[in-house]
Amino acid sequence: MNGLTMALGPGQHVGYAPRMREDADEALMNRYAAGDARAFEVLYDRWRGPLYRYFLRHVSTEAVAADLYQGCWEKVIRARSRYDETAPFRAWLFRVAHNHLVDHYRAGKPETELVTEPEAPPESNPGAHAEQDQQALRLHTAVAALPEDQRDAILLKLEGGLALDDIARAMGVGRETAKSRLRYATRKLKEVLADDHR
């Protein structure tokens, strides 16, 4: 069961046509802008997880992340008629997300301070998944400890899957600056992974 079906509840089935599932994000966004709400549902199902986690790794609590996430989608919905189909949808989506996050930081609310310690994973599966959980925890902690710009660059890469040029565009910086941030972040996280393998 995917996330959207779960969100709609067991009695509600979206029932996308197979062709719709294969459609490119850009085509779906265009169809939504033209009034096709079902196209948005497919698009939403594809991006709900990565976008939510992008916010979750940036802020301290799930409640704040959910708030930012919902606000970001509201901006996407309002801006649907301004979407330029020549740009990749994911790059546009994460640019909106980045700007929304910057607006949130600028508001300077105390509860929006950056993550220092991510929440511990649940203890329900201490056996087989214990090692994996520990690695995930260390990775999340390392990401949270990155400077804000480096964290944003690496999350745009890891969660959004953005290419370097799109990361630069989303962050509003030059390509080399984005590349540098990404390198520094990668190097630090690589050390965490290396420690895991020792």
């Binding site: 996330g3 997880g49 999340h140």
Partner: peptide, 10 residues
């Protein structure tokens, strides 16, 4: 972990 948004937000 592959966290997902709350259902009510969806």
């Amino acid at each position: 972990h592959r966290e997902e948004p709350p259902a009510d937000v969806d």
